[in-house]
Design a protein around this nucleic acid. Sequence first.
DNA 1: ACAAGCGTTAAACGAGTGTTTAATTCTAGG
DNA 2: CCTAGAATTAAACACTCGTTTAACGCTTGT
Lengths: 226, 226
Amino acid sequence: MNARLHKCEPGPPAAADPTRIRLLKAAAAVFAERGYQEATVRQICERANANLALVNYYFGDKLELYTQVLRFSLQPEPGAARFDLPAATEQPETALRIIIGAMIERAFETGEQANLRFRLMLNEFVRPSEATCRVVDVVMRPLYDRLREIVGGILGLPPSHQKTRLCVHSILGQVAHFAHAKPVLGLLWPEMARMNRVHRDAIVEHVANFSLAYLRNARDSGLVRG
Amino acid sequence: MNARLHKCEPGPPAAADPTRIRLLKAAAAVFAERGYQEATVRQICERANANLALVNYYFGDKLELYTQVLRFSLQPEPGAARFDLPAATEQPETALRIIIGAMIERAFETGEQANLRFRLMLNEFVRPSEATCRVVDVVMRPLYDRLREIVGGILGLPPSHQKTRLCVHSILGQVAHFAHAKPVLGLLWPEMARMNRVHRDAIVEHVANFSLAYLRNARDSGLVRG
DNA sequence: ACAAGCGTTAAACGAGTGTTTAATTCTAGG
DNA sequence: CCTAGAATTAAACACTCGTTTAACGCTTGT
């Protein structure tokens, strides 16, 4: 069934293998760009300058490579703050602006150093794979719970309240939409096709203001009215 | 290259062919459920109780079937109001509530009679296909333009204004997210997994209130502040 | 020097895809 | 009735996918 016998299963020695890491990085990029299903092992190996059989040699199969990509791109770089968890000491509204900006920044980040975690997550949102449960547990739920804390803090409601959750999904939905709909956006709204920093900043400010309008209003008018 | 020689290309005689229509209906359902790429002609033919070769016999190839599905599911049923274009005489806020409700209703509609146009559109949003341009022109842009009219009417801004467009995308994003994220939503928020009528109504009301909070606020404070 | 084992390679396999072909059935028209 | 053409069928084709295999270097310890 599997073919990865070259060493004991997990652990640091195998994790430090250079071609193994090349495969993981290439796989992260291809998976983030095309999603799990439409990404092919051949694309990954070509990008990694590795032989086709090495994916199965190191990881057994495509799905195990995908889950290890998630685990790999999750590990916090030493010294780098978790992008999606702004300091708890921030004012809730400030924290919300920061987290929205961070999400959109990550969604449009390009280049070699791009943190692909968020885009991997976005793909799972719209096209669940066989590893969706793992993705949810490992990268989505922490972000979701933090957003509920922040939004609940603004609303004056507990994080588990239905209204809190609905608002979190409204925010996530806006971010996910701007991230996903970029190609279609270019057809409906040509000026936005380039999507450079100016556009991104405008989107961040808009999403934050659009969402805060309801949150403040709901907080100030108590829990009853919408 | 093609094999559809059995009759002159378009026109009512070919369009009225019973098995041709069976194929179109089956294809609409499968494309709406799985998207263009992941839908297979074998699934379509099996659902239509038709032979595998008939897709190529009637439509030439899979892509032409897809575009004709879009054209087919677009044609308005006689006597049925266009769901996405509430009467222009409505008050803008009422029109917005109606259109949001209609979109979410269509997104979760199931069964034989489901109007699949909206779900076909949602798929193109997140995973553009070779027919995206056609989808945009034929089903997305009318909805997008109507939303800009309504939202611009509330904001007191022209439909082409950047703020109007951003707000339209915030609304579309929320709807698309609740429609797409249903499987993941069930993992993050178990109570919402069933997604019955009560949940749908709550979502509709929430999205409308969430969006109107900003629109009213922006209208009342003029064009300057967010 | 040599044998052992890991990393790597080219080639193939089996399953699944869209598409094509050639034969068969069905249906009108003379 | 009989035949020409349309509709339908089963089978195969060419291609891509993930995966497997067997052989090939290459280092390493003895």
